[in-house]
Amino acid sequence: MRKKPTTRPPNMVPPYCRILRGTGPASIRQHVGYLVYIWTVDGDGFWMYPTEVRGGILFGYIWKSAHYEYAQLRVSLVDCLY
């Protein structure tokens, strides 16, 4: 498992981009180790630092208003990422 980030994410929310929709495990793996903004299929959005994609699950650190929290997210719930 990679260490959690030491810097805060940007204060802005990037624009939703339809081009980046339909993200699957192979696409998400390209972003492991980089801070990304994720939109879920139910419309939620948050900053995440992915550390691993395994068995259809995305592992990493999600920014929760003042700190990072380790979390798991089913890849099928990811609508798109930036």
Rank of each mutant, 00 (worst) to 15 (best):
M48D: 10
E52M: 14
M48N: 08
T40E: 09
Q30Y: 00
E52F: 13
V53C: 04
H31W: 00
V41W: 10
G33L: 03
V53L: 03
Y34I: 03
G24Q: 06
L35F: 02
G24N: 12
G33M: 00
R54E: 09
D42M: 12
Y49L: 02
H31T: 03
P25K: 10
L35V: 06
R29D: 03
R54Y: 08
V41G: 04
M48F: 07
G55E: 05
S27H: 05
G24E: 07
H31G: 01
Y49M: 03
T51R: 04
M48H: 07
Y37F: 15
G55C: 05
G45F: 13
D44V: 00
G45Y: 10
D42T: 15
W47E: 04
W39T: 09
I38D: 01
Y49K: 03
W47A: 06
D42L: 14
Y49S: 07
V41E: 09
Y34W: 05
G45T: 09
V53M: 01
G55N: 09
V36G: 01
P50D: 12
G45N: 12
W39N: 08
I38Y: 01
S27E: 13
V53R: 01
G45H: 13
V32W: 11
V36I: 15
W47Q: 06
Y34P: 00
S27T: 14
H31M: 02
S27W: 01
I38H: 00
L35R: 09
V32Y: 06
V53W: 03
G43S: 14
G43N: 15
Y49C: 05
T51Y: 05
G33D: 03
D44H: 05
P25L: 13
I28H: 07
V32D: 02
Y34R: 14
G56M: 05
R54T: 08
Y37N: 06
G45L: 07
E52P: 02
W39G: 09
R54C: 05
G33V: 04
T51D: 12
P50C: 12
M48S: 11
G24S: 08
G56W: 08
P25M: 14
Y49V: 01
G24C: 08
